[in-house]
Amino acid sequence: MTFRPLVRALGQGLAWRVTAKGAQTAIVLLGATVAVFLMVHVVPGDPARAALGAQASPQAVQELHQQLGLDRPLMVQYWSWLVAALHGDLGNSIMLTDPVTALLAQRIGVTAEIAVFALLVSLVLAIPASLVSARWRGAIADRSARVIVLAGIAIPSFWLALLLILAFHSVLPVFGYAPLSDGIWEHFSHLILPSVALGAGHAALVFEINRIGLIEAIQQEYVRTARAHGISERRIFLRYALRNAFLPTITVIGVQAGYLLGGAMLVETVFAIPGMGRLLINAVTARDYPLVQGGVLVTVVIFVAVNLLVDVSYALIDPRIRRRIRG
């Protein structure tokens, strides 16, 4: 999605807003890389040991440690990394030896696909359920839905993943990733269980927020007015109440983008999916510093970009915000 038409349409106000967000993003990125750099270096664990294995001699580990330049002062290491990163070079993975950018490029599509499917799963489950729940508040359907939602919030995605594997191992593939070239069904069947495992918790939150939003919306005066004009309940809910209730829901979806990326790490490990999440988990356990830093950088960029999109989408959904931005 390009922002230019939007900026033109919405005028300078939005341009400033985007610029300010961009500056904030740069600061966040810098801060994140410093924090991650310090964290991965401060915790014990030597990538040279991870690369050489349990039974390598300490001498061999020390030699590789020096070869990797890990005996240099931390500031020097960070500065070298930062300068290279500003030139688009995130270095090479210690464990996989390939350039970090290439590794992330290979994996990000897989993770994005799972995250998008999980998001779709969550919306498909949560929005209709929240509509039913709000419409018949206090009824059995509402109460049942809320119990399921509580369970959805409480059950961690990795545990749900294991339950799904146990339940569906004879019906659906329980591990791996099949590219589209393997066939459409093959491709999508491998995504069903991971997407459900990841999307279920998200669905629960979306349901809860949207339900509350809807309940508040249908108590507003404009709804009463619409009813007085004889507009059907269906139209009131779908056209007026849902649109107004959706603003906080979008905020949650945006904030939860981080959750989806984090959850993808666990789900990818359980389902043996070669996505960015598993790549980063392996990188962390192996103290693959360049890969951890590159991965975190990309994750932060995605997170910030999604939140920027959420900000912009407010303007698209709510004319009042659009007018305010135009100033």
Binding site: L162, I165, L166, H169, V174, F175, G176, T269, V270, F271, A272, P274, R278, N282
Partner: peptide, 14 residues
């Protein structure tokens, strides 16, 4: 296949 999770590998075997 690289399957880091033992429960997943076991279920795949079963």
């Amino acid at each position: 296949k690289i399957i880091p999770s033992q429960p997943t590998a076991v279920q795949a075997l079963m």
